[in-house]
Structures are given as C-alpha cells and as structure tokens.
Write a protein that binds this DNA or RNA. Structure first.
Lengths: 231, 231
DNA sequence: AGTCTTGCATTGTGATCGCAATTGCAGGCC
DNA sequence: GGCCTGCAATTGCGATCACAATGCAAGACT
C-alpha cells in the first residue's frame, strides 16, 4: 500500500527570499508591455512562454491571469491563445480619456506632498529620459518616462487611483511603441516634464495637473495620428 | 472495442460547453462581493474556499488572482491569507471620485445609443429595484441596482471604460453593505433612476450624465456618512 | 490537382502531490 | 497562574500528470 516513492528531482528554490516566481514572471511581462516590446496580435502559448522564461507553466498561468484581468493581455475565446490586444482607435480614445482624468488628478494630489527628495529623484530620472531620447534608445526612454510619471503618482498616496493608472499604462504601452515606429524618436522630444517639475517644486497642484495633462495630451495626439496612419 | 470509459475517478465535466470552472468561481465570488455578502477583514484560505464551493483549490486560485488584480480582494503579505480590503475613508473617497467620473461618462455615451429595447429592459429592472427596496431584500436590491447601471453602461460600447467601472463596483460592494447595516433600507429609496430613464429615452447625453452623477453622488454620501460613523 | 479527412503534436484546464513556512494549540517550565 | 516552547495541522506555491480540445500537416479520395 505504501510505496517508497523516490523523492524526485523536484528542485525547488528556497522560498524564504521574497519574490515569488509568479511575481517575477508578472514583472517580466509587465516590463515588456510597458516598453512595448511585445507586438500586438501575435499569439503566444503558456508553455512556450514558460519555456522561454525557464519556469514551469504554472506561475506563468498565474501571471497571465493577472495581466488578462488588467486587460493588458487578451485571450482569444476561440483559440484560447493569448495576445496583446489590437490597437484600435476606439481603444486608444478610451484609454486617452481615462488617463487624462486619472493621471493629472494624481499629479495634483502629489503636489502638496512633493518634498526635496522627490524633486531630486525626478530631476535625475528626467535626465535619464533626455539621455535616452538623444540616444534614440526606445526601451530606455519608455522605462524612464514611466518611472518619471509614477514617481510623482506614488507620492499622491492614493493607491486605488494609482493602480488604475498602472493598469492604463500597461494597456497603452503597445500604442507608444507604434509612435516610435512611425514618427521616430525625434517626434517625442517635447515633453512637459520641466513644467511639471516646476509646479511640484512650488507645491502648485493645479499647475502640476495642467502640466501632466498637457504632457499626456500631446503624447496621445501623436499616438492617435500614428494609429490612424497605420490603419 | 467498446469503451466503457471508466478511466479514472476524476470526474471531469465536458469542457465543450463554455463556462470554465475558474470562471464560475470568479462569478460566484464576484456576485458575493457586489452584493456585499463577504465581510471585510475576515481571512479565508484558498482550500477552505475550494471546499466550500466543492472544487479543487486550483480554479479558486485562478479566480482569486483575478480578483486580487482587480483589487476586489487583498492578500495580507505576512499571512498570505486573503480578505476583503478594509473600509477606509481614503479608499472610499478615491472610489467615489473614480466612479463619479467614469459612470456618468458611460451613461452619456450610452444615451445616443439607447433604443426601445434598452428602455424596456431598464424599466423592468427598475421595477425589480423598487420591489426589492419595499421588501427590504438587500441582496436583491444590490443585484438589481447593479444590473440597472450596467445595462446602461454596456450600451456605451466602451469596453475599456466598462471594465474599469466593473472593477470599481467590485470594490465598492462591501461599502454599500455598510450603508444598509447602518441606515437601513429606507435610507436608499431616493434614487435617480427615473431621471436617468427619461434622459436616455430622449437621447439626452448630458441629462443622463447628470442623472447618474446625482444617483452616485447621493449613494456615496450615504456611504461616507456610514463609514465615518462606523469608524 | 484540388479538397476533405485523418493522425499527431500542442495547448489550456484541472487534479494531485510535495515542500517550505506559518499558525494553532498544547504541554511544560518558571 | 502566566509565558514560552515544540509539534502537528494547515496554507500557499510550484511541479507534474491527465485529459479534452484545437491546430497543423500529411495522406486519401474524387
């Protein structure tokens, strides 16, 4: 009845140190989405993703489910294969409108809480943004720009709104990549980060709101033009 | 070669017909959250939930992960036990503000698309709302109220915004239950459903926006009062 | 030669098992 | 009697297996 049952070679890493595997997978895919490294429409499979990342399909399933819940990935109900949602004008319009409400609001809430440490951090991130921009390094620009915005938003201490904003960036990432593909990096040099910094330094909530709104608005306009041009 | 098909005791339902088990579990928990049947703060375990629903822990894990991604459930990082997020004033304030932007917007978008079938459906749902209200049936009221709002929102054909609104209701459900616990069902009789119906019938986008905004605003005020009273 | 069918590989889903870690509860010590 | 300690039970995570269903490609038939 009881069999010796060879203990298997199931190699397991010590769970003691924090980051769970499915969280690492989540972060990996998340970063890929934010920087737009994953092309929309291509259907990948769970097992192939797992093999690519060197883990078992299980944590990938968990991570993918999170991303699907955040609408950063989509599942074809027929195939059940997963892909990045396609870039439609309707989607972009909704994402634009949502971002244009949430993110300026977060900036406004952050302004009164902005301290010297935040300003310093933002300045260094903005330098990174500019450096990536002059180098034409798309991934670096995307990552740095994301960090700039969310360094501000995190200061707002509004976790519900913050997570909504995070979900929106996950969905907008693929669109941003199209912009680079079409207009090139030069088309993006004009951001409103300096204005935002000034407003935050002065604790000017409405100024921060306007600066971020303008920054987003211009970026979304470019995306819209790129999407319309690309059909 | 006859196949009696006794291959295993693992009873598996034919996957052909659609609803996957983890989706059913998701819907079950979702409904429980929307109607506020799950009290905040209590920590349940995956296995206990699975046993309660009569399924294996696996689909429960999937469903819970979705709900955690939508911030409808929270995981205590120490215990790793999951619970409904506690009702803080800060959370309610953020949820209120987000709802007050998204849901009136969806109503405004739905107005030009409202046809006779929708009006008829809404009228019947609103009767259900009133019936539940006079009976004091909390679950029925919550469910019907939810259906009334989302029957409108779905007409907007804005899936991104719609899913955001859905996520917000999931988070607000527990708060709504507090209102009933404190002020009783009588405190909620005054909704703006009639006004919304009139505006939709006339295709009046701004009227629908105002009606839904007023409806939400009054409800959220009651919740705020209840939460502040309840500490 | 073109179209349909058949067969195999691959996929997502769910169940079960194993492991590390935490929790709960005794029982013992001061 | 109260506090601490040690052991058993429980929990989440990940791996592996099983199975139904789909995708794809080669073969068969007209």
């Amino acid at each position: 009845m009881s069999e010796p049952k060879p203990p298997k070679s199931s190699q397991r890493r010590p769970l003691a140190d924090n980051p769970a595997v499915h969280d690492q997978v989540y972060e990996a895919i998340r970063q890929a989405l934010i920087t737009g490294r994953i092309a929309p429409g291509v259907g990948v499979s769970l097992r192939s993703l797992a093999a690519e990342l060197g883990v078992s399909p299980m944590p990938v399933r968990d991570a993918v489910r999170r991303l699907v819940a955040e609408r950063a990935l989509a599942i074809n109900p027929a195939n059940k294969r997963l892909s990045v949602p396609s870039l439609t004008a309707a989607r972009l319009e909704q994402l634009s409108q949502a971002r244009l409400w949430i993110e300026p609001e977060l900036a406004a809430r952050a302004a009164p809480r902005a301290d010297a440490a935040l300003i310093k951090l933002l300045q260094s991130i903005d330098e990174e943004v500019d450096a990536a921009l002059t180098l034409g390094d798309v991934d670096r620009y995307m990552t740095a720009n994301h960090r700039f915005h969310f360094a501000i938003y995190e200061q707002a201490e509004a976790d519900v709104l913050l997570s909504m904003a995070g979900g929106l960036w996950l969905q907008i990432g693929p669109f941003m990549r199209v912009v680079f593909g079409r207009v090139g990096a030069d088309g993006l040099v004009a951001d409103r980060h300096a204005e935002a910094l000034e407003a935050l330094k002065a604790g000017d909530a409405e100024g921060a709101r306007r600066a971020i709104a303008a920054d987003l608005s211009e970026g979304m306009d470019k995306m819209r033009a790129a999407v319309e041009a690309g059909g």
